[in-house]
Design a protein around this nucleic acid. Structure first.
Lengths: 152, 152
DNA sequence: ATGATGATGAAATTCAATTTCATAATATTC
DNA sequence: GAATATTATGAAATTGAATTTCATCATCAT
């Protein structure tokens, strides 16, 4: 963790930025989160240890981490975006349209195919986002068809 | 096209909805669009043939089409969402973080793997979204590394 | 220390998206 | 084919996530 924070700090310095306590607090909390968090959730969490940190800084820091490749922006259609660490597992998500459950999965074969596609287009990938929407086991049987047809 | 519109109408009626001219105008225009459109763009387009149609109806209609599985919501990080027809090719997108270029690609193998994943989780998919972010051929060489490090 | 520049956070702003509500259009019943 | 019921519409108001502004503070280089 310490090493990670130092590495990020170095990258920021290289880019002409400066160190900052608020930002460090945000980054540390972010990587401690187990699940995808919204800005609001993370702000609340950060404020437990650094009460004076504003939501704007959380926004800015997450944008920064995203640009550096450490964070991933997710959108489950809730209105607010969610973020997760992009460090370890590159997993993707199954999102249930009915109960909202999010199932994570990881598939190296899909990733390999993605790499092949990007190479073919001379494209240099920094991150990706794969979300599959549908109905989970509980919400699927029978109900799915009706639900999908409901016009309102 | 006619058949498609009638089919959608039937689905709406089945679900307890009613026919409507405004909605028909939106749906028709939507399927005529070649590229991913924002609500604002589509509204402008619709108004060429049906000037009195409001943006709210375009919103509602696209949500409806999405629920029925005919439209797909995209997010290239521009602020506003984009929509495209979900009818023919199930393609995905490479989005350049620098110049904003969007490259479409289609890969049946990836889709097959996705199906396998969903089956394994007892998940009934209705749509998916795969966006790969990075740097396109023009913006990639050398520049990418710097850009990614820029802290601001 | 001093000056220069980046970072912060509260408040203001922006703007996509949604909700409200009175009216209009469509379907159903008789 | 009128009367009734229900859905759809659109303008305006509202919401709320995200961004911008700006005066102040913190950090870095000298």
């Amino acid at each position: 963790m310490r090493q990670l924070l130092e590495r990020i700090d170095r990258e920021i310095l290289t880019g002409g930025g400066k160190r900052s306590r608020s930002r460090a607090a945000v980054i540390e909390r972010f990587f401690l989160e187990r699940h995808h968090v919204t800005i609001e959730e993370l702000t609340r969490s950060v404020r437990e240890s650094a009460p004076r940190v504003g939501a704007v800084t959380v926004y800015r820091t997450l944008k920064l981490l995203e640009r550096l490749g450490y964070a991933k922006e997710l959108d489950f259609g809730e209105g607010a975006k969610r973020y997760e660490s992009n460090l370890a597992s590159h997993h993707d998500h199954l999102v249930c349209r009915k109960c909202g459950t999010v199932i994570e999965f990881e598939n190296r074969d899909i990733e390999k195919l993605q790499e092949r596609v990007t190479r073919r287009h001379g494209f240099q990938p920094t991150s990706h986002r794969l979300e599959i929407y549908g109905f989970c086991r509980k919400c699927a049987p029978g109900k799915a068809a009706e639900e999908v047809r409901c016009p309102r």
